[in-house]
Design a protein around this nucleic acid. Structure first.
Lengths: 120, 120, 120, 120
DNA sequence: GTGGTCTAGACCACG
DNA sequence: GTGGTCTAGACCACG
């Protein structure tokens, strides 16, 4: 899986990394149980600090996306358990985006079409 | 209009303020041409520094949401002009949220229903 | 002569007024010796504060563009005397604008054509 | 690059700083990709507050002149993208300066020569 | 009375 | 070590 970091984004690097791994899981590119690179290897590959990768892994672990053990490193959790609801943060973000879309005179139908395209 | 600041959020106060005003405009709670509180009044009301309010207003101004004049303070721009497209940032955020929703086993239909509810 | 004030400009109203009168003189719309409206009349016509008009007149007077006397009010100075050189401020502004034009990849010829058009 | 702040100018310090950096980019004194001093270092050097430098940097960033990243601080954007047109504000300023030049009996040819000299 | 500017100083997230 | 955020407080230009 290819990770792309934008050094100039407002989104911190560890969060960009976390997001891309989550998206990889969601798309199926990262399979349940799949081994992730070691912190060191991934840091080297992307050209970022090991601390940054470590932080991303810790967040993914605390969110229940990955498992880590000393022997095998990190891997995608075979059975990810999540509430079948959006988090409050995500609801807020959605509301903000929808508000901006409405002000931009994007109509509801084309907005939903965008969502449907993204869902695939 | 009631502004609520979450001190524990990662989102900076000025941005929370900016977001809530944008949502107020979108919902119609803040009408085109409507007067906003003065920087000082709003700072006092929310219990934050005038600079922080000022920063929010300046962002809103630079984004074309409000107008400020020396005499009357700030008001909602009567004709807000926006590109009828989602920004790249908003698209990225949507993509992230959708990915998380899919992992949470939220099905597409109920996700879209959520959007439709929020759109109203 | 029609004066147009933009309440939302960063340029203070008194300065907008001053600028428009200077441009009126330059274009010939305001002739040497021509009477200007009284402070009160102009304030009423434009819908601004008399203090603001007064401030504009004072600046124009100190710059040698107009004459005021208690009896006749203000009028355009019959013989405006100016150094036949740009002021330091105007040179600085020109330099700034040229710098921005160059970065915008505007070519020198089209920039000068713009100047020549404006000069007419 | 030497930055000179005029304490007595009407132009705010952060804007003087912004202008001088833009002029530095335009003249080539600041090369694409070149590192800028840190906010703290520049504040110390000029003898102003870090917030003021920070404000200048944020404006330059929002205008697309510079990039900032958390690791390395600010640098000149390698590829600055600008509309190849003068802004309305710059056109207005040009018009004002030309008007004043005409009143000062500066003739068109020498005015354009001044522009050409500045362009180099 | 309004927003705009600036300072000194603090704390924080990021890497 | 870097920029980002926030505060308290001051002063100023404008109208």
């Amino acid at each position: 899986m290819i990770i792309k970091i934008n050094d100039y984004s407002d989104v911190p690097i560890y969060m960009q990394l976390r997001n891309q791994i989550v998206m990889g899981i969601s798309s199926g590119e990262l399979a349940p149980g799949e081994q992730l690179p070691t912190v060191r290897a991934l840091a080297l590959e992307i050209g970022i600090n090991t601390m940054t990768v470590s932080k991303a892994y810790q967040i993914l672990k605390s969110e229940g996306y990955i498992l880590t053990d000393r022997k095998n490193g990190a891997r995608i959790r075979p059975e990810i358990k999540k509430e079948s609801e959006l988090s409050e943060e995500n609801k807020n973000e959605l509301m903000r985006i929808i508000s901006e879309a409405k002000i931009s005179k994007i109509d509801r139908e084309s907005f939903i079409r965008t969502i449907e395209d993204m869902w695939k």
